[in-house]
């Protein structure tokens, strides 16, 4: 089993990247601390209080990320923090390993999903911990209402009504295609904004996010506000088609 002290090399990747650590070790007070461990006494260190799922401000916030690298980093860090490796350690260290693992899992789940990743960035930039307020265009609700009606009809259909079922299936299949196309278009728009954002971010000189970045974020928010809804409707149709 690898020991914690052997894993002090710098970890590069889309998250938990931080230049310099300016806090002493919680246990021995040594200043010789890297991101995860104390170099003197080898104890595990808590994540910095301002750790966010993305790179730190110095490194920039990137929306297009290498998923393979993300996964690799996740496994690497999981091995580093796994509570199993700390069973023989002090109670404090056990707790830190548990907390770090919990944060790591949340970070990975958030970053690997493009929609969750973007929502997280929005909340981070706006300094708001609330879920995104959701809204959608009125025409979408009309489509969805019709879909729900067909789904309901499907549910209460007389099992012997073959032709009724076939008609409904046809209606639902067309609706499914329409919604999937809509979802695809929205996703492409979102990825377009990802590129725009990353370009703006790489050219950012100031501490603060720029106005073009903020407006890019607003446009992403608009898409994100109903993407979850769309996913759910598509799921509803797929379920109904199995009846």
């Amino acid at each position: 089993m690898e020991t914690v002290s052997e894993k002090t090399g710098s970890v590069r990747g889309p998250f938990f990247e931080k230049k310099g650590v300016d806090r002493p070790c919680w246990s021995c007070k040594s200043e010789q601390v890297d991101l995860f461990n104390c170099i003197s006494c080898k104890t595990i260190q808590e994540f910095l209080s301002d750790t966010n799922y993305f790179a730190s401000l110095n490194q920039g916030y990137t929306l297009n990320i290498d998923l393979e690298q993300l996964e690799k980093q996740y496994y690497d860090l999981s091995r580093r923090f796994h509570p199993d490796y700390f069973q023989q350690r002090s109670k404090e260290e056990q707790e830190i390993s548990l907390e770090n693992t919990a944060l790591l899992n949340k970070a990975y789940q958030t970053l690997k999903d493009p929609q969750k990743r973007a929502s997280y960035l929005v909340r981070l930039v706006e300094g708001n911990d609330e879920p995104l307020k959701t809204q959608a265009p009125a025409s979408l609700f009309e489509d969805i209402f019709e879909i729900q009606e067909a789904v309901e009809e499907m549910r209460f259909l007389d099992p012997s009504d073959e032709s009724g079922r076939n008609n409904l299936k046809e209606t639902l299949k067309i609706a499914l295609e329409k919604m999937q196309q809509y979802q695809k278009d929205e996703r492409e728009k979102l990825y377009g904004h990802f590129n725009e954002w990353d370009q703006l971010e790489s050219g950012r000189q100031s501490q603060d996010f720029t106005d073009p970045q903020k407006s890019c974020l607003t446009q992403m928010k608009q898409i994100l506000s109903h993407s979850g809804y769309l996913d759910r409707v598509i799921q509803d149709i797929k379920t109904a088609l199995k009846f």
Binding site: P131, T134, Q135, A136, A138, L140, F141, E142, I144, F145, Q148, S225, H226, G228, Y229, R232, V233
Partner: peptide, 13 residues
């Protein structure tokens, strides 16, 4: 009037 709330998935006519 057809309206909906994406957060809960409700839709109302």
């Amino acid at each position: 009037g057809v309206v909906g709330a994406p957060e809960c998935g409700d839709v109302m006519k």
